[in-house]
Design a protein around this nucleic acid. Structure first.
Lengths: 343, 343
DNA sequence: CTGAAAGCGCTAACAT
DNA sequence: ATGTTAGCGCTTTCAG
């Protein structure tokens, strides 16, 4: 493992100054074309690789952006990550990822860690347990841009990329009502996060506007693991009378509920119509296929990353704060169609 | 956005030398406890954050490791990533991720990029199109450790974390034979990758050892997208006579095939028994639930990361090359049980 | 068009 | 137990 080649070595070899070598390497138009050519060739021949840290130290920019999420093992989060990665890589930025497994402490630690690593910007979705947003204050203070997606907090005047969860839930619930449902369960998660509280609001308003009285007993709040899903499904099975529709906040949970319902001989959608959320791959292989809301993860990731990078490149002075709302839409499949498709 | 606080500022404030401050910050036992306390407090009060790049430059180590994969939107890869992240974060390393979307060129570019970023080590799974492994040569030359998982190449004398794909496939196929299948399709992907070629070998040997003649027409090689899966399923449906069993190299593809088969009124497992691969979440919500091979992604990720870090911390002189084979096992569910479970 | 030289913030000999 | 000092490799004025 011999020593690394530096620009000094190249400069020596070529009897040039390091300044010229540096400029040549950076494709500064001020250097003679021939010199540049020569430097490039020599660098290549000698096996030179630029020292990223010396450069970062000098320029005080890291060219890396953070991606901090509550969970990595989620198809939705992963499609976002894939979208982000696509954009950041093209733009020459590194992605440093961190996940908090829904723990507030871990999120705080990760935020501090990334901050100390001097990421140029952060893309993040909050953990369910996060109440306090103080850990983003250092970013604010130093002018490091933070972009939120999915789980955001209105208390923070930052850029956020989201969908209209209220509208999506309203649509989903209305669809169930249109199919003849009148006792509709809503299975969702921790309401401190906007995504879930907004969906609940949409569900409530849809019922109300259709003259269906609200029954708080039909709202189940639980975590989104398989075990929790089975437990929730069983709780629904114990309701009397049985609900005839269910709007479930996540496709995987919806799929597990469907499985459980079927084990108990319920027919779907006949006995109970189901609408999920996310349009995960799983939604097309359940039986019947799952009606769901298309939540465009990859597009969200790409949008967030583009926004961040354009902020980073663009003078950094744009303090324009905005909420970007992407389109979502209801995808009707078999699990919710009590009426004939073309009725 | 005011200037950053450095150790010089702290040293000034406290009338100490930067050396002492540096040592105090690094918890060097040689500094007086009281001094250390003081430095820590002051640093905190002044809003100091260490400059990661100055440090990396000085120590010529980056404390970051690369994770380069062919695809990010895969439940398997993601469980590996989650496992890796767990270990690396605890050990104080950053994770820089890159994905190549199965393109050889992108893989080469990513490998070079990560190399130039001076990652301390790399964890990777090869793209399907990768034939040539020259892009790992620089890592070899500079002694940067590379650990492969899942899709590995025996030509490279590097550490690899895998399962015994041959054995898993042998077991899966034997299970189908035990269930009375005699015309078993194998649906798999690009054979230049060990995972798939080994599985094919296991499938073949199982047939052979059970006296079932090999019919190359029953081996279908295709990519692993939803469209490809539907196409493969249709190809199987056109076979005459129809196969009575299918060993499919990936749960998602298996689930899509099942769906397609059922659309064509095949009964599973009665008409065709199915075994998938991976034990993805999807395998428990299909109907019937999918028999599959448990491929422990998170454990693989944790193992690879631990191995890499212990190499990195441990003198770096351990040139011990090894292949770590983790256990996998057949999980029998409804999709393959032609015989009564306790027959 | 090219060179000299300062300095980004930190660590680690080497002194004291 | 603390201080002095010399770089790590690069970019970037300022001078030619």
């Amino acid at each position: 493992m011999r020593k690394d080649i530096t620009i000094y070595d190249i400069a020596n070899q070529l009897q040039l100054s390091t300044a010229t070598v540096s400029r040549a390497l950076a494709a500064d138009p001020v250097v003679k074309k021939k010199t540049r050519q020569l430097v490039l060739e020599t660098a290549n021949k000698m096996g030179y690789r630029s020292n990223y840290h010396a450069r970062s130290l000098r320029k005080s920019r890291t060219n890396s952006i953070g991606f901090m999420v509550h969970e990595l093992q989620s198809t939705f989060i992963n499609s976002v990550l894939a979208g982000v990665e696509k954009i950041t890589t093209d733009a020459g930025y590194d992605l440093i990822i961190a996940h908090s497994l829904e723990s507030y402490e871990a999120e705080v630690a990760n935020a501090r860690n990334l901050f100390h690593k001097r990421i140029d910007g952060l893309i993040t979705s909050l953990s369910c347990e996060t109440k306090n947003l103080d850990h983003f204050q250092p970013y604010k203070d130093k002018g490091v841009p933070v972009i939120f997606f999915d789980r955001v907090d209105t208390a923070l005047d930052s850029t956020a990329v989201i969908i209209d969860n209220y509208k999506a839930a309203y649509e989903a619930t209305t669809h169930l009502i249109d199919q003849g449902c009148s006792r509709i369960v809503h299975l969702t998660a921790n309401l401190t996060r906007n995504v879930y509280s907004e969906r609940l609001r949409g569900y409530r308003d849809a019922l109300h506007n259709n003259g269906i009285p609200l029954d708080e007993g039909l709202v189940i709040i639980n975590s989104l693991t398989e075990e929790a899903a089975v437990a929730s499904a069983k709780r629904i099975l114990c309701m009397n009378p049985l609900p005839d529709g269910a709007f479930i906040t996540n496709d995987f949970v919806a799929a597990v509920c469907m499985r459980t319902f079927k084990e108990y001989k319920l027919r779907i959608p006949r006995d109970i119509a189901i609408v999920g959320f996310n349009n995960d791959a799983i939604s097309t292989v359940t039986e019947p296929a799952l009606t769901t809301i298309n939540y465009p993860g990859e597009e969200i990731g790409m949008t967030a990353a583009r926004r961040l990078i354009s902020h980073l490149e663009g003078a950094g002075s744009i303090h324009q704060i905005q909420t970007i709302v992407l389109n979502s839409r209801l995808i009707v499949r078999g699990s919710s169609q009590k009426k004939a498709p073309n009725a």
